[in-house]
Structure formats: structure tokens, C-alpha cells
């Protein structure tokens, strides 16, 4: 599943991150909830991947599963494998995972209001993990904290390091959260909706910062978002998620210019444009996402899909590349849009 694109899109011989058939199931009192259901991904060093999907499509759970924050336990079941720099994240001991976190992989969280401890100074947020992982002395870690604040574009870093989170604005706080994630030089950064809680003007700054840091530090980035606008032009590839599954996976420009899955096309069509005349109705997707406790048989998008046939409601489509497509795009649809167009032409 999803194997064809790996050889073509990934340039490095051994990918930094290789997830195969990952499924995360929460055992709830009302039944098993399949939040992530058979997702395969790979990411080379320095590459950026965007994961888009609407709320509840399993993007965040996928991010946390890839990182190993969600593991197999009494209330969750994680199957499949996640290889991070050659280590299987889910086969490691908890102590082994802790050594990966911060140094190999780090995460930027959604809400900078709650992802900083209100009673800890900014500097201590940064210096603690540096001392823990890199074994720096107190003075060295303080210098490193100031360097990090400088790196994420915070003015007067030495003064800011002595302040508490509530003394900083939302954008500044998110910069601190990014600095925390960068503290130990991770090779993979997972940004889970890093701009959702921020002002639009600040959103662009934070996204630009993430992009430039990724290029500067040659750090692979996974950008999780429900907003296609944040992904456009900033990632090498995009994976579109729907109800716990990948429905389309291709180069970013390819997805935007030539979406192949009806869901991707509908998502892109529902982005408002400035050049639309006033009072134009935005094309919205009819219906609601399926209940993950009891997902529909066959293609999960079928009940809302305009091109669905009987085949779609009975048989689940696999993520496959299109014949003759050398860009590595893959789509999970019985009636991909490009193919339909070719057939009619």
C-alpha cells in the first residue's frame, strides 16, 4: 500500500521516517475508534510533508503516533511500524523513546497558551531539555537558551528569557514553543497545527519561520493543518487525510493544480478567493465526516462523494499510483478525477 511513490519521490536511499500501515485504535466504552487506519508514509532528510484533513480526520493522532507519544497500551492499540532513523519507535522501551524525543524528533503544539508552563520562566523552558539531553552546564544552557530565542526571531532574547509566558504575546509564545522543539537539534519536526490559535498576520510569520528553519537546519518537517492555505507553497508533498486514511498523496503543486481524489478537489474548491464576487456561495462538502466508531464499508468518502458508484460502497480503494505518472502521486479512489477526464477526452 502506497509503495510506488516511495521510490520516486524519496531521493535519499534510506528515508528518515518510514511508517508502514500504521493504525491507531482507541478502545472506548462505546467501541473501538479507528482514528488512524492503515497509513503509510515516508520522509527523506530535509523534506517537508503537509498533512491536511478536516477536524477529526486523525491528523493529530497520526502525528503523535509517528512520534511515539501514543503507544500500544491498555486503552489504545497501535499496529504497523514507524521507523525513525532506523529505530522502530514502537518497539523501543519507554526510556529508549525518551532519548529519541527532543534529539531525533520534536513536536510543536497547537496552542501556545497552554503549551508553556505558566510558572516557569521562558529561559528555563529551553535550558532544561538542553541540560537533560546534551549535558550542558547551567551557564552553557543559559547561553544556548538565548541563542535559540535569537534564532526564532525574538527581539531582546536575554531579557525575554527572564520573563514568564504570560508576559509574551501569542506569536512570541509560539516562537518559544518552536525554540523548545529546536533546542536539541532534532532531525524531524512535527508541527501539529502550529498556527491555528494565532492571528492571521502572525500565522504567516510563524510559517515562514518554520520554513526557513527547516531549510537552514536541513530538518525534515511534517506540517499538520486543516488549512490548505498554510500548506500551499510551503511543503514538498501533501498527504490528504479523510476519516483516518490517506486518500491522496502527491507533490504539493500536483494536488492543488490537479487534484485526483474527489475529496481533495472539494477541499480545494471550498477555499474562498478574493476575486470571487460578493455573496457567492462557497461550494461546501455536503454531509458530515463518518463516525470512526463505526466507519462505512468501502470508501469512507462514498456517502458524500458526487462520483460514487456501487463499487465505492462495497470495496475499499487502495492507495495506488496512476499509470504513466512519474511524479509519484498516489490516490485511493475507484474513480480518480484525472482518469475520468482522460476517459472522456
Amino acid at each position: 500500500m502506497g509503495l510506488p511513490e516511495r521510490e520516486t519521490v524519496t531521493s535519499a536511499p534510506v528515508p528518515l521516517l518510514q511508517a508502514t500501515d500504521v493504525a491507531t485504535v482507541f478502545r472506548t466504552p462505546r467501541g473501538a475508534m479507528r482514528a488512524v487506519d492503515g497509513v503509510s508514509l515516508s520522509l527523506a532528510r530535509g523534506e517537508t510533508l503537509g498533512i491536511v484533513g478536516e477536524s477529526g480526520s486523525g491528523k493529530s493522532v497520526l502525528g503523535r503516533t509517528l512520534m511515539g507519544l501514543i503507544t500500544d497500551g491498555p486503552e489504545t492499540s497501535v499496529t504497523g511500524s514507524v521507523l525513525l532513523g532506523g529505530n522502530d519507535v514502537h518497539a523501543l522501551t519507554p526510556a529508549g523513546r525518551r532519548t529519541l524525543w527532543g534529539t531525533e524528533v520534536a513536536m510543536v503544539f497547537q496552542d501556545p497558551m497552554t503549551s508553556l508552563n505558566p510558572v516557569k520562566k521562558i529561559g528555563r523552558h529551553l535550558s532544561e531539555s538542553v541540560r537533560l539531553h546534551l549535558g550542558l552546564s547551567r551557564a552553557e544552557s543559559r547561553d544556548r537558551a538565548v541563542d535559540l530565542l535569537c534564532q526564532v526571531g525574538i527581539p531582546e532574547p536575554a531579557r525575554r528569557a527572564g520573563q514568564y509566558p504570560h508576559e509574551l504575546s501569542g506569536g512570541m509564545r509560539q516562537r518559544v514553543v518552536i525554540a523548545m522543539a529546536l533546542a536539541c537539534g532534532p532531525r524531524l519536526l512535527i508541527a501539529d497545527e502550529p498556527t491555528t490559535a494565532l492571528d492571521v498576520t502572525v500565522q504567516k510569520q510563524i510559517l515562514d519561520l518554520l520554513q526557513s528553519l527547516g531549510e537552514e537546519l536541513r530538518m525534515a518537517t511534517i506540517l499538520i493543518s486543516h488549512d490548505l492555505g498554510t500548506i500551499a507553497g510551503r511543503t514538498d508533498r501533501v498527504a490528504v487525510m479523510y476519516a483516518g486514511r490517506l486518500v491522496e498523496h502527491a507533490r504539493t503543486a500536483e494536488v492543488f493544480d490537479n487534484p485526483r481524489h474527489p475529496y481533495s478537489r472539494a477541499l480545494i474548491a471550498s477555499i474562498p478567493h478574493l476575486d470571487l464576487s460578493p455573496h457567492t456561495l462557497l461550494p461546501a462538502i455536503e454531509g458530515r465526516p463518518p463516525n470512526l466508531l463505526n466507519p462505512p464499508a468501502g470508501c469512507r468518502f462514498a456517502p458524500r462523494c458526487v462520483v460514487a458508484t456501487d463499487l465505492c460502497t462495497t470495496q475499499s480503494p487502495a492507495l495506488t499510483g496512476r499509470a504513466g505518472d512519474d511524479t509519484g502521486g498516489a490516490v485511493a479512489c475507484h474513480h480518480p478525477l484525472g482518469a475520468a477526464k482522460e476517459a472522456t477526452v
Partner: peptide, 8 residues
């Protein structure tokens, strides 16, 4: 969660 994700 952030502290956990940093290996605490």
C-alpha cells in the same frame, strides 16, 4: 505533553 515530548 510538550515536556513529555522533549523526553522528560
Amino acid at each position: 505533553t510538550a515536556a513529555r515530548a522533549m523526553g522528560a
